[in-house]
């Protein structure tokens, strides 16, 4: 499953992802940028957990896993009770004051099925948000470590 993953030290807190998300999703942003210690920006969005607590807790079973693997809210079933917001360890789902339904990242389901990247990834000017297979960043890290090790071995 392809996922959005974060490279937090690249985030400069410009909130372009928020604006792009807002434009793409009926003027309700689903991404957040938290500022830590008043200085360090940290991009936050739904992690589409493997075993999502929101999915387990939803009393109306309105939260489901889509074909692309994203955890999505079925707004036709959502009653806006905010249970998902209570159980989410990242505090991501939020009950919209305008529609009374939960607003939550759907991993840009329509874009991803078209083969495009999610809009937040597309809009990030610094590449702090990346889109790819879950193993991809791990594989990159492994390769980098292997290269470093090889260099170190050669040096001695």
């Amino acid at each position: 499953m392809k996922q959005v993953y974060l490279v937090p030290h690249r985030c400069m807190g410009c909130e372009e992802c928020l604006v792009a998300c807002e434009k793409a999703h009926d003027w309700e942003t689903r991404a957040y940028v938290e500022i830590v210690d008043g200085y360090f920006p940290f991009p936050m969005r739904c992690n589409h957990c493997q075993d999502a607590p929101c999915m387990a807790a939803c009393p109306k079973d309105a939260i489901k896993r889509s074909a692309s693997g994203a955890v999505v809210v079925d707004t036709a079933l959502c009653i806006g009770c905010g249970t998902c917001s209570l159980v989410c360890p990242f505090g991501v789902p939020r009950v919209s004051a305008r529609t009374g339904k939960v607003v939550k990242c759907d991993l840009c389901d329509d874009r991803v099925t078209r083969g495009e990247r999610p809009i937040c990834v597309e809009s990030c000017p610094k590449g702090a948000l990346q889109f790819g297979e879950v193993d991809e960043p791990l594989a990159m890290r492994r390769q980098r470590l292997a290269r470093q090790l090889k260099g170190a071995l050669r040096a001695c």
């Binding site: 937090p8 938290e34 505090g91 789902p93």
Partner: peptide
């Protein structure tokens, strides 16, 4: 130990920052 969603996000971001 219940946190509101905003504090939950802040706490997570701070934890990640500490980790980094």
């Amino acid at each position: 130990t219940m946190l509101c969603a905003a504090c939950q996000r802040r706490a997570h971001a701070a934890a990640m920052r500490r980790h980094m």
